[in-house]
């Protein structure tokens, strides 16, 4: 902790609470435009911030479109492709989706879109619940550096980054601090 205080890595604010609010509201508008059958839409958040973002987008859709759409949780830990390579195990959470998924549109919601591997795992997880009519992707930040042929349908903000930079997202509900997004340039020893 002390080390961090004395030697903070360079951090650049990218979005404040108002910018995040506007981005999510715009995503809600786009979801309404592109999905005439809104009642078939399920917003599936990836824990933990994706779940909160899905909840907020559903709130905007309720305000704008006067319709309550369903939300769910899609945990990807047990579908990841890096099992056995981690010295420490991440928490696995229970997934929760309204069933059956047939004829529904599942919109995966995550905070930062990076390599695409998390979203691939999320699509695999969704398939084990059933076969939705279509799957879409909504992200708050698209930072680039895709490693798989996957692209978001709804983007809060495009933010070109270098791979040694880190995007930090903070939300009131998950991080107990004011909403914000910032970019960190990591100077740590692990940067090759």
């Amino acid at each position: 902790m002390n080390q961090l205080k004395e030697n903070p890595p360079a951090a650049v604010p990218v979005m404040d609470a108002e910018a995040i609010r506007r981005a999510l509201q715009r995503i809600a508008h786009e979801i309404i435009e592109r999905n005439p059958q809104l009642e078939k839409v399920v917003l599936a958040g990836i824990p933990s911030r994706g779940v909160e973002l899905a909840r907020r987008i559903a709130g905007f859709i309720r305000e704008i479109g006067k319709i309550d759409i369903e939300t769910g949780v899609i945990d990807v830990a047990m579908h990841r492709d890096d099992v056995g390579t981690r010295p420490e195990l991440p928490m696995v959470r229970a997934s929760k989706l309204p069933l059956p998924l047939e004829e529904r549109t599942v919109i995966i919601v995550d905070d930062v879109f990076y390599t695409g591997r998390t979203v691939r795992a999320a699509m695999d997880a969704i398939n084990s619940f059933g076969r939705p009519a279509r799957v879409q992707l909504a992200v708050l930040i698209d930072r680039g550096h895709r490693e798989l042929p996957i692209r978001p349908d709804y983007i809060g903000k495009n933010l070109p980054t270098a791979s040694r930079e880190q995007i930090q997202v903070r939300l009131q509900e998950t991080d107990k601090a004011a909403d914000a997004v910032w970019l960190e340039k990591t100077m740590s020893s692990d940067a090759r």
Partner: peptide, 20 residues
Amino acid sequence: DTADAFKQVGTREIKKVPAL
């Protein structure tokens, strides 16, 4: 807590995950 997540897998249409 982890077992909670895996208990949920038993309720899925496909009761199998690629974890291992």
